[in-house]
Design a protein around this nucleic acid. Sequence first.
DNA 1: ATAATGACGTCGG
DNA 2: TCCGACGCCATTA
Length: 113
Amino acid sequence: MERSHPQPREPAPDIPELASAVLDVVDLIPAGKVMTYGDVAEYLGRCGPRHVGMVLSRWGGAVSWWRVLKADGSPPPGHEAQALAAYRAERTPLRAGGVKVDLRLARWDGEPV
DNA sequence: ATAATGACGTCGG
DNA sequence: TCCGACGCCATTA
């Protein structure tokens, strides 16, 4: 199909395509499940866990950012209370103490629900 | 183009 | 369990 517009860019020209891909993956995580930064990075196979964090810190507000956390189950720094509230609302499995997610049960393998 | 940054991960103590 | 050091990698200044 021919494009009438001289600049057929993405709907979000401020967001790099890789970053957009990260946001897309995060949006795929079902409620009650989570992925680690490393899991998202490995899922994409195009960047490292650190970069996933950077993307979410900048553009994560448009997606379910709370469903991405550290490898030890700790919620994103600076948003712990907010994330924990979301886990409670989505019935995400938490570990004893309720400050960390039980990755054993809540980790999403990427398969459809 | 190079240096510094950051919502990470892994290992050692 | 907690803390520090090092490695990783696209983005930003």
